[in-house]
Design a protein around this nucleic acid. Structure first.
Lengths: 245, 245
DNA sequence: CGGTCACTTGATCGTCTTCAATACCAGTGG
DNA sequence: CCACTGGTATTGAAGACGATCAAGTGACCG
């Protein structure tokens, strides 16, 4: 289940090639708490990196030396049990901030599922930034609060929902992120594999696959290919996701 | 499963009877980010309340008008599905801070499992406090980060662990909070019911009960009565909790 | 084309749930 | 003192949902 792990390849001073002022992630990330006039400070605190799909760029249990801000692509965060069982705790995209843990080691691993670009802040430099820009700390607290709410929602899914409800909930959540076209039907892409979905919603690959085909045969979704999904009947899907069937 | 809901009974200005300087919770809560000289500010921002066991003092979906700081007793936080399925997302005790959600409504309900005392801060007053004491905001961010780590651990439990592993993990986590006596054996109390435990670890009451008796017959725990637990073999329990059986 | 990989589909199995009965304990009132 | 009650926990038997094991399909790529 775990792809062969490679290390990040590129490493450059942040401001050199792609200043924060032109960053795709800025509008969606905590960085927008820092005023335009101070963007150089921000740029100088970070280094940019890119990793290929399948690369692990954060490893659970290793010393938590830095924080990360995703500026391109998407990744999965996960925890492992010693025998290899895996729980994906979240998928993260552009603008997401990683590694806030207070403890000395990372509590999760992160692996790119698409080519990922990110900024890396050492603990010390982020600390200095936060001290100078309390607004950024406020934003981080907001972000963390929202993630906590999402985590509780996911606990409800993992602890109490059926396979059908889990898959429906997952599809709806994904549809809210990356919509491709929005007629009455809502189409969007699933950048992750069935195995990733399974490890996220606490099922097996086979059950995810079977559940998707069942949803299709029930006329609730369309699956033009393995990576694209169309929700044909959103209200019905929402009822399913909440267990109201 | 949900007890009849009553409303909080007592409501008094915080400083009037029990100043923050003598608060049991202070050392364990975010309040300790506020210097002694400013404690009056803190006291005036809050009102104190007490609720009996079984009372719901935060309700999912209602307008999120305030934040809470537990100063006595313990409570459970949970989410419900429309058909009554319940997921307890956490048990909280003295010093715990509740209600950080950014959204307009509470994302969870809170019900006392022992007689609970708490301080209530209106959003506006907490906002003012945080603006004046950035150290408190820093502490909140730390707390939120730690809770996020705990939430991920719980996702691993709910998504990937067996019944035996879940119960063992739960007992170990509880043992780290309220130890009564610590010989080689570790005894502690479980203030919550079997039903609460079940809804926390994503099982049924029956499975929790059966699993506990199995752990006892395996000589791993002792169960002098329904509310007390003794872990007889902690290393073995830790291996079980991590799936290394 | 052969190989790999992701996905799908089928058949069987096992863990946990469900349903049901019983035990237990504290509180209440005859 | 004891029967009665309501809530909680334990235990047993049967059943279901999802896991596991296994085979087959299709896309992509050297």
């Amino acid at each position: 289940m775990n792809a062969f792990q490679t290390r990040p390849l590129v490493l450059q001073p942040r401001g050199a090639i792609e200043p924060c002022s032109r960053c795709d992630a800025r509008s969606r990330s905590v960085c927008n708490a820092i005023p335009d006039t101070e963007l150089r400070r921000l740029g100088e605190a970070a280094t940019t990196h890119t990793v290929a799909s399948g690369s692990t760029f954060v490893t659970e249990g290793e010393p938590a030396s830095a924080f990360f801000n995703i500026t391109g692509g998407s990744a999965k965060l996960y925890k492992l049990l010693p025998d290899g069982r895996r729980q994906i705790t979240g998928f993260v995209g552009v603008g997401h901030f990683l590694g806030l843990a207070v403890s000395a080691t990372y509590a999760f691993s992160a692996e790119a599922i698409e080519h990922v670009r990110y900024c890396r802040f050492s603990r010390a430099k982020l600390r200095a930034l936060l001290d100078d820009f309390p607004a950024m700390e406020k934003r981080l607290l907001q972000v963390a609060s929202n993630e906590l709410v999402a985590a509780q929602e996911q606990m409800l899914l993992l602890g109490r929902k059926t396979a059908r409800e889990r898959v429906a909930s997952f599809l709806l959540a994904q549809s809210r992120l990356g919509v491709i076209c929005q007629t009455p039907r809502v189409q969007f892409a699933l950048p992750m594999t069935r195995g990733d979905i399974a490890d996220y919603v606490g099922l097996t690959i086979e059950t995810v696959s079977r559940t998707l085909t069942k949803l299709r045969s029930d006329g609730l979704v369309d699956i033009p290919n393995a990576t694209d999904i169309v929700i044909c009947n959103r209200p019905a899907m929402e009822r399913i996701a909440e267990g109201m069937t």
